[in-house]
Simulated assay, not measured.
Amino acid sequence: MAVTVEEAPTEGGGATDRRRFNAMAALAGLAAAGHPYLLTGSADPANIGMEQVRLATSLVEDLRRADAAVGADQLCDVAIHVHTRLSTWAASSNYSRAVGDALQSALADLGIQAAWLAIDADRRPEARPYLNEAITRARIADDPRVEVRALTQLSMLLRESQPGEALHCAEAALRVSAGWATPRLTTLLHLRRAHAHAVLRDESGFSREMTKARRELERGTHEDDPGFVHFVNSQELNGIEGLSYLELDKPGRAAQSFREIIANPSPGHRRNQVYYAVHLSQAMYQQGDVNEAARIALDALPAVSRMNSGRITRHLAQVHSTLATSRRATTAAREFVSAYDLAVKA
């Protein structure tokens, strides 16, 4: 089921109502797809068959589509609830060995999705237990593809706080996927390593991994691409490059990368485009161009207000705080600060 959610009208109701409208529309889509059995409080089944496992597996893809449409803030609790429900089934119901292996993989995949939603909802501390559990379940089920997805997500989670461990996770994913990884998956793993090297202030390591990522991306898509690499494209490559240059205190180079994204938008990945636009504002401020930083932030404000992404909301709040307290306050900066304050109150 493709969850398609149109933007709520911008006039009246405010950002909170628009976010609630989008989230409720996405959840209604999940229920319509046949998931109320997992979403509601009906009695746990005494026996589990492949039909229930396939239902849980399809929910992961539906959550991913809903997330792309409306962001993670409202969906995070849904994913956590379903993961808890399915874990109870796994502990208390009867099933065959084959169903048990498939159930382990489904739970691992659902845990990874819950972890991502927690990251995007800016609830990062909640994410790691799901990823640790997912790696264990993937090992039990002997499912290397799910294990690689979990390691890839764990590398992203840890890159700012524990960049050395993030490197190890990406390297482990490269080892596990050797022989079957598609170019886009390999691109993603090199991007994970590139960003971690940048946080570690290792510019040569960053450059080396970016070169490998570009080479792999140029090999194109593949029919065996796993669903979770759908966002790996030139926009994402430029975005990770820009974030890494910010870590390396090179805001000019970062701004060039972010402007490439603005100039060549990826319509199917609107949230990532907005995320990187907010970082472009940050890069321009670090370059000393307060007016341009404020203009970019003001342009991004309506899109951020329409999204359910605590991660992007927090980054824009940091830009607001920087411009509101800057000694280089300008008319443009004051205009953004006022517009932001009004949007927050709406």
Rank of each mutant, 00 (worst) to 15 (best):
M1C: 12
A2F: 03
P9A: 13
P9K: 10
A15G: 11
T16C: 02
R18C: 10
M24L: 14
A28N: 13
G29M: 11
L38I: 06
T40P: 01
A43S: 12
I48D: 01
M50R: 08
A56E: 04
R65W: 08
A68E: 13
G71K: 02
A72I: 06
Q74S: 14
Q74C: 06
V78T: 13
V82A: 07
A90Q: 08
A91F: 00
A91T: 03
N94I: 04
R97S: 13
A98G: 08
A102C: 04
L103G: 03
S105E: 11
G111N: 03
A115P: 11
D122Q: 08
R123H: 12
A127D: 10
A138Q: 06
A138D: 10
A141R: 06
A141T: 05
D142T: 13
S155Y: 07
L158Q: 14
E160W: 04
A172V: 07
A173Q: 08
L174R: 15
T182Y: 06
L185A: 09
A196E: 09
A196G: 12
H197Y: 12
V199N: 07
V199R: 13
V199Y: 08
L200R: 13
S207W: 00
E209H: 13
T211R: 05
G220E: 04
D224C: 01
D225A: 02
D225T: 04
P226E: 08
H230W: 10
H230K: 00
V232P: 09
G239L: 06
I240V: 15
I240L: 15
Y245Q: 14
E247R: 15
Q256L: 10
R259N: 14
I261K: 03
A263N: 15
A263D: 15
N264K: 11
S266L: 00
S266M: 00
R271H: 08
N272H: 07
N272K: 01
Y275L: 13
M284V: 12
M284K: 14
A294D: 08
A294E: 09
A297D: 14
D299M: 12
D299K: 12
D299P: 07
A300G: 09
L301V: 10
P302G: 06
H315S: 07
L316Q: 13
A317R: 10
V319Q: 09
S321K: 08
T322D: 09
T322M: 11
A324E: 07
R327D: 14
T331V: 14
R334I: 03
E335T: 15
S338F: 00
